[in-house]
Design a protein around this nucleic acid. Structure first.
Length: 216
DNA sequence: AACCAGGAGACAT
DNA sequence: ATGTCTCATGGT
């Protein structure tokens, strides 16, 4: 499909080796960030995290027991206030009760357990596995899709199919966890320079002098 | 004012 | 197990 080692080298040359890790001080904060950033910009998620920190809620037990309305107000900058407040509190409850024991689980068992938490889907489970529990994982997100497609790879549309398609080359590359962590960071940097359309640049038809058609 | 932003969950095949 | 459809909101 694609040589991930070569991609890693290329992106390092492009953006510089950056020893990238998910922004955040401690694992729980990182996990909260992974949920809050869903379908929104990192700047917005970061604002919500700052608010939570200010309220002393960046600790699992405190957030789990916090008033729902308070949490709603604090995470508002991250948007989706119907779902995200519930999701970060569901995560906090799980974290408070199970995160400790989760270190003993296999990579696959941990992932399965994370998927059982409300608001944690495939991508977020992989992000938490990698950046909170230091388990090998590759984030098959929209950026990865763009970057690989831009290099000519046929990338399946669904997360599952994408992930499976990468299993082989991923095993072949034998990345360390730190390398996987940095690779994702590099892919994000590179992905931001790409269009989401994934369509190769097409030549615009010669523009006529006609004014744009009036909208209705 | 339309459009985008680092998905998840429910449901049907 | 895999594909499809729906939801949902702050910021620019």
């Amino acid at each position: 499909m694609i040589d991930l080692r070569a991609l890693h080298r290329e992106l390092r040359a492009l953006h510089g080796p950056q020893g990238w890790w998910w922004p955040g001080e401690e694992p729980f904060e990182i996990a909260v960030g992974a949920v809050l950033v869903q379908r929104s910009r990192w700047e917005q998620a970061a604002a919500a995290i700052t608010a939570l920190r200010g309220a002393g809620l960046l600790e699992a037990e405190a957030l789990a027991g916090a008033d729902e309305e308070d949490v709603r107000a604090l995470v508002r900058p991250a948007g989706f206030s119907r779902t995200k407040p519930r999701r970060v509190q569901a995560l906090a409850r799980w974290w408070d009760e199970h995160a400790d024991a989760a270190h003993e689980l296999s990579d696959a068992a941990l992932r399965t357990e994370l998927l059982g938490v409300e608001g944690v889907g495939e991508e977020t489970a992989d992000a938490i596995s990698l950046y909170c529990f230091c388990r090998p994982a590759f984030l098959c997100d929209e950026y990865a899709r763009r970057v690989l497609r831009a290099r000519g790879a046929m990338v399946p549309g669904s997360y599952r199919a994408f992930r499976r398609a990468l299993e082989g080359v991923l095993a072949e590359a034998e990345f360390e966890v730190a390398e996987l962590a940095e690779l994702h960071g590099l892919i994000v940097e590179e992905g931001k320079t790409l269009r989401s359309s994934s369509a190769p640049p097409t030549v615009e038809p010669a523009r006529s002098a006609a004014p744009p058609r009036a909208r209705r």
